[in-house]
């Protein structure tokens, strides 16, 4: 096969220039005015204008009416709009959107999980016709997004950077949620002995502050037991809780710790244990409780001892 020589390359470039010139010849002309005569009051002037750019128009916004968040996870929210551009949809250069909490942020505010989200490039979902396009703007809302009214603001711009905006409101529901581990493990404790301090974290994974109550039972609600063992059992008064985590390395005084109730109808509200919504730092939404177990002789417990502790979150 013969390789192209330099003359052939030049011929190709020449043909390319002719093609570009031909395209440019077909571009629209500038606004024209003709026939105006200076000093003649009766001169009629014929003016013609070729509107080379029409502004985009954002309309028909839609969004879900109420948003229910998922604890410790994100929730997708779609905000959609039709964008019309009379220079055809090809002239729409960008569509972006913000979703912000109406009480705590502004459309041009800074992105923050609790109050403000930005989608700088909404998706071109489908063309309705050659002038109108449906855009879909998605936001991934965190579980701690503030409850209340939120506004989705969609802005479309064209190639000449002319833009239009429209907005729609929705409501984020309050979410009362907690995250806890699966087990409070006291380990091996001999009869007439106390367990070590067992630290157990409670995390607020909703969007409101929560109060924590606890109740415990052996095998069923209100059975007066803290644990049921292979042989015998441990009564309810022998499991205690505290939020005194100032020095949780040294054993807490068992007698100063809070007795846990045995029934779901009278759970023990752990005093001063309000777990805050994750607002500034994630660690602020975690509270540590301290647990201890005493194994009495009464009930003659031995072997593996199993109980249940329920952590209940209520709106603070």
């Amino acid at each position: 096969m013969r390789l192209p020589d330099s003359t052939a390359t030049l011929q190709f470039l020449l043909l390319l220039c002719i093609a570009v010139l031909s395209i440019l010849l077909f571009l629209p002309l500038s606004p024209v005015s003709e026939g105006g005569g200076i000093g003649n009051p009766n001169t009629s002037v014929i003016t013609r204008v070729n509107i080379t750019n029409a502004a985009p128009y954002v309309y028909n916004l839609s969004i879900i009416n109420t948003i229910t968040l998922v604890p410790n996870a994100t929730t997708w929210v779609w905000c959609a709009a039709l964008v019309e551009d009379l220079n055809t949809v090809a002239d729409i250069s960008s569509v972006n959107a913000t979703l912000h909490n109406t009480n705590f942020s502004l459309p041009n505010g800074v992105d923050y999980n609790t109050t403000h989200y930005t989608n700088s490039s909404c998706t071109n979902f489908s063309d309705v016709d050659s002038f109108t396009r449906l855009y879909n703007c998605t936001f991934e809302l965190w579980y701690n997004a503030n409850p209340g009214n939120w506004t989705c603001n969609i802005t479309a711009a064209d190639a000449a950077t002319v833009s239009d905006s429209e907005r729609i409101t929705t409501t984020v529901n309050e979410l009362i949620a907690l995250m806890v581990g699966d087990l409070i493990d006291f380990g091996k404790v001999a009869v007439l002995n106390y367990s070590d301090n067992i630290h157990f974290n409670v995390t607020n994974v909703g969007n409101k502050n929560i109060n924590i109550s606890v109740y415990a039972y052996g095998s069923r609600d209100n059975d007066t037991l803290a644990m049921v063992c292979d042989y015998g059992n441990i009564s309810i008064g022998n499991i205690r809780v505290s939020i005194n985590s100032s020095d949780i390395t040294s054993p807490l005084d068992f007698n100063t710790m809070t007795i846990v109730n045995n029934s779901n109808s009278t759970p023990t509200r752990i005093a001063n244990l309000t777990v805050l919504q994750y607002n500034m730092t994630y660690t602020a939404s975690i509270n540590t409780t301290v647990w201890r177990l005493y194994v009495p002789n009464a009930g003659r417990p031995s072997g593996i001892c199993n109980g249940t502790v329920v952590f209940r979150a209520l709106r603070a």
Partner: peptide, 12 residues
């Protein structure tokens, strides 16, 4: 093994 309490989470 030993003694422990299974934890249940509740929202009310």
């Amino acid at each position: 093994g030993g003694a422990g309490s299974a934890v249940k989470a509740s929202a009310a």
